[in-house]
Amino acid sequence: MLPSISVITPSYNQGAFIRQTVDSVLSQNYPRLEYIVVDGLSTDNSLAILATYQSQLTLIAERDTGQTNAINKGLRLATGDIVCWLNSDDYFLPGALRKVGEHFAHHPNSLWLTGDCQIVDEAGVHIQEPVRQYKRLLRTLTPALYAGLTNAICQPSTFWKRSAHEQLGYLNESLRYTMDYDWWLRLLALQPPAVSRELLTAFRIHETSKGGSEFGKQFEEDFETVSRHYPSYFVQTLHRWHNQAIVQVYKRIK
């Protein structure tokens, strides 16, 4: 029997993309789907768009303290066996949830699963293919060889058992950029992820996204995050060197 899946979408002023996000979830036609959208009282047309889907999802519209707080609200409400979050400018590829559900049905001892994702621009055009292939290569290694070096996990393509929250709590709301990396490292302390080479989602980078406009600050918080999990000076030094190299690459490809 396929497990139930809860998808959480934190939403705030992404009216240009939110319809594609919601449609990508609902069009999965997954038989045991719970979809929760947590909007922080958007001031654009996001809420008007979301209102047209109210019979097909649970909409929470209230002030929050940021993206991580919104995700946690949804995770605390979720009832699915498997949970994930999908940001309001990203989207699922066709058949993604079926592949996820079948993995957990066939591997009942698996705690979490991570797959591949396309990187796209605001028009949905594929970009940064070398970055995608590099992280794809890292995920073929054991996490011990890359987890302290960089966040090679595709956030929108990662799913875990809701029961993990009973042991680990929820996302760290003090983190603005790397709440996902911190969460992967906490999950990793329990079990390495199952890794799928399947393309499950599209991760969008655009002018107003954090990944597109604030990558320098993101790397600063990234280093602070890895330092909490890896006190080793050697690991921290490698991580810092890697971040510096990646920043230079990002500056060249932007």
Rank of each mutant, 00 (worst) to 15 (best):
Q14N: 12
V7G: 01
T178Q: 14
P192W: 04
T237N: 11
A152C: 12
D90M: 04
P193W: 01
H103S: 10
N243F: 03
T142E: 13
Y170D: 09
Y146F: 14
N72G: 07
P143D: 09
L187E: 07
E62R: 15
T9H: 05
G212V: 03
A194S: 15
L185K: 03
Y91N: 08
L26V: 12
T140Y: 02
T43E: 15
A16Y: 01
T114K: 00
S196H: 03
I253T: 15
V100D: 11
H239M: 04
H126S: 13
I119E: 00
E198V: 04
G80Y: 01
N87A: 14
Q128T: 00
T150D: 15
R240W: 08
A189S: 15
L175S: 08
D39L: 03
S174D: 13
E173L: 04
E129F: 00
P130G: 07
T158H: 09
R176T: 14
K210N: 12
K251M: 05
G148C: 08
D182L: 06
Q56K: 14
P231E: 11
S157R: 00
T150K: 01
E198T: 12
E166M: 08
L50M: 09
R186W: 07
L59H: 12
V131W: 02
S27Y: 04
H126W: 02
H229Y: 13
Y177I: 02
T68S: 12
Q218W: 03
F92M: 14
E122R: 06
K254T: 13
A16H: 06
P143H: 09
S209Q: 06
A164M: 08
A202T: 05
R139E: 00
M179Y: 13
T150S: 12
L200T: 07
G115R: 02
M179P: 01
L145H: 13
H206E: 12
H106I: 08
H206R: 02
L141C: 11
N69S: 15
T142Y: 07
Q191G: 05
I82Q: 09
Q133M: 00
N29K: 11
R252E: 11
T140P: 00
N72L: 01
S6M: 06
I82P: 06
Q155H: 11
D90Q: 05
L188I: 03
H126C: 07
T237D: 08
A96P: 00
L188H: 05
T142K: 10
G212M: 04
V247L: 15
F223I: 13
A51N: 14
